[in-house]
């Protein structure tokens, strides 16, 4: 069963197309990542799916409810964590959660129990009566995710959940997301521009650039598309000959370096090296998502960030 069906969503801001004709489905229970540089349209898409922003055309169905016709019903079943914090700084952690439970009309007794449980899970129980202003960035993010999950939504949206956090907090959040996924069979949609994040968390990834989905698949399949291994040689290479070898997927010259991708580089290394005349530097490694991104967009994600 699909948790979300997205049907041909387009969003124009003035004359610029922020999203052009996006269509895809997200399955029940999967962690789905939208990977792309800043300004690719990730947040716009999330805003539309969470009924905050109206699309110029197209629609989506979330848990059987149409985002345009039944926005309040859609909202009951989703949790959202924004890129920018939306906690109330002047209130305590517990008060923030309690108000949330009221907004989602949770019965008082259930709310109290869940607030306690969830604060314990995110290690904030001892600080439950502290004002949120005194929390670190990582703690605030943990609390926001906890809040997004409080009303037991069927789908959780996380917009850049770890942006601006230190590596330690980032790992904590990843662990927590994995745990939630395992224990609650909840569908999670996250946007990120960190490759590592998308790779370690997602069941499927959509690479989005300039308002279009350019690839959508599991991390493994995405990597297979360009070959499992990658060979980078700085030196003089007869690239036409290398390209003609049947096990080679692609040969590109970028910044004086030949980037050769293939299913099995190590096994066939001798055959490739026959056409290499001089080596100043050489590297063989497993393909990463970063390589996929580079191949698909022609640029590194950092280069596309403005």
């Amino acid at each position: 069963m699909n948790a979300i069906n997205i049907k041909d969503i387009t969003k124009k801001f003035k004359e610029v197309d922020a999203l052009s004709g996006i269509s895809f489905d997200i399955k029940q229970g999967e962690v789905f990542s939208l990977l792309g540089p800043n300004g690719a349209g990730k947040t716009t898409l999330i805003s539309i799916l969470t009924t905050i922003l109206k699309p110029t055309s197209g629609t989506a169905v979330i848990n059987g409810k149409d985002i345009i016709k039944e926005p309040l019903d859609v909202r009951k079943n989703i949790g959202i964590v924004f890129q920018e914090p939306s906690l109330d700084d002047l209130l305590t952690a517990k008060e923030n959660l309690y108000l949330h439970s009221m907004l989602y009309n949770m019965p008082k007794e259930i709310a109290k129990k869940r607030i306690k449980d969830i604060l314990i899970t995110v290690n904030l129980y001892e600080r439950k009566d502290h004002i949120v202003k005194t929390f670190s960035g990582g703690m605030k993010r943990q609390l926001e995710i906890a809040r997004g999950l409080l009303h037991t939504p069927k789908i959780l949206f996380l917009d850049e959940p770890t942006v601006g956090l230190d590596p330690f907090s980032r790992r904590n959040i990843w662990e927590y997301i994995k745990k939630v996924k395992k224990e609650q069979n909840i569908t999670i949609i996250l946007t990120t521009h960190y490759m590592e994040e998308a790779e370690s968390l997602s069941d499927r990834i959509a690479i989005i650039n300039k308002g279009k989905i350019i690839e959508l698949d599991t991390p493994e399949n995405l990597k297979k598309k360009i070959g499992d291994e990658i060979l980078i040689i700085k030196g003089i290479v007869d690239d036409n000959r290398v390209r003609s070898l049947d096990f080679i997927k692609s040969v590109d010259l970028k910044n004086d370096k030949y980037i050769i991708t293939s299913k099995e580089i190590t096994k066939n290394l001798n055959k490739i090296l026959e056409y290499v005349k001089r080596i100043d530097d050489i590297e063989i490694r497993k393909t990463s998502l970063e390589d996929v991104f580079l191949k698909m967009t022609g640029k590194k994600i950092e280069e596309l960030d403005e």
Binding site: T50, T51, I52, L72, D73, R75, K76, I80, F82, P85, S86, L87, D88, D89, H100, L103, Y104, N105, R147
Partner: peptide
């Protein structure tokens, strides 16, 4: 802060 939380709630 708070308004965004309310705007996305039902």
């Amino acid at each position: 802060d708070f308004l965004k939380e309310v705007l996305i709630s039902p």
